[in-house]
């Protein structure tokens, strides 16, 4: 589904990624873990087209997507969420999700300003689809609230709801459970499985080990910009290099 091949990225003197290669199979939940500063978010930034890599390539279903812009990638079915919420703060929760349907609609500047019949019909469809995403993510009650006013838990869910609205084939989630309480985290775990069951491939970056071990089919570990290990949750838990990397940090 997604293949990262030998990707490197430097920020000035900092080597954020050093020759990282990963393969993510279709229909799975793939975890990427690693201590703070390991390069997980940087990897997402490169895959999703926000940063150019210094070296290496990225493939989506055999297609070379290195250096494609985010607005192109979402049309190919690749979307992501943000660790530091990037919600449209002054828009309502519903409107946030409606922006997610941007590529699934086509009304231009003029037909929007003139409110042509075709545009109105499309607008109705956008609202309906957006509600479905909100319901799926349990945000229906707060639909009319301003996104900036949401507590962290619902903000993280909105990141996911908005991404799902793009009807992705693969979704990259950057710490969807960070800062959440146990009950909220369980909700996120259920949602992630639901998304996988919809046929969407999930790549999950997360620090909450319990969550990662519980939902992931396969896990890769990054440390200091390099891949340290990969395997099933069981294998990773028993891997001494991984344990050292984490213990070394704490």
């Amino acid at each position: 589904m997604l293949k990262v091949s030998n990707v490197s990225k430097n920020f000035g003197g900092v080597a954020a990624l050093r020759g990282v290669s990963l393969t993510i199979s279709k229909g799975t939940i793939a975890g990427i873990i690693g201590p703070n500063g390991a390069g997980k978010t940087t990897l997402f930034n490169i895959i999703s087209g926000l940063y150019p890599q210094d070296e290496g390539e990225v493939f989506l279903e055999e297609r070379n997507i290195s250096f494609l812009s985010p607005e192109k990638l979402v049309r190919l079915g690749l979307v992501r969420t943000f660790q530091n919420l990037e919600l449209f703060g002054r828009m309502t929760v519903l409107e946030n999700v409606m922006v997610g349907l941007h590529t699934k609609s086509s009304s231009g500047l003029l037909s929007c300003a003139l409110r042509l019949p075709k545009q109105r019909k499309e607008e109705k469809r956008i609202v309906e689809e957006a509600w479905k995403c909100l319901e799926l993510c349990g945000l229906a009650e707060v639909a009319e609230k301003e996104a900036a006013s949401l507590p962290l838990g619902q903000g993280r869910l909105l990141e996911v709801a908005r991404a799902l609205a793009t009807e992705p084939k693969i979704i990259l989630m950057d710490e969807p459970a960070a800062g959440l309480n146990t009950r909220e985290t369980t909700g996120v775990a259920d949602l992630i499985r639901k998304i996988r069951d919809m046929g969407i491939t999930v790549v999950l970056v997360e620090h909450d080990m319990e969550l990662v071990m519980e939902v992931c089919d396969h896990i890769s570990v990054l440390n200091l910009g390099q891949k340290l290990a990969e395997g099933s949750p069981r294998e990773i838990q028993d891997n001494s290099a991984v344990i050292n990397a984490y213990l070394g940090e704490d």
Binding site: E71, V74, V79
Partner: peptide
């Protein structure tokens, strides 16, 4: 308005 609030997120959602 999405571009105004977060240009990166707007681009991720497919807004050029």
């Amino acid at each position: 308005r999405a571009v105004s609030d977060s240009e990166v997120a707007a681009r991720i959602m497919g807004v050029d």
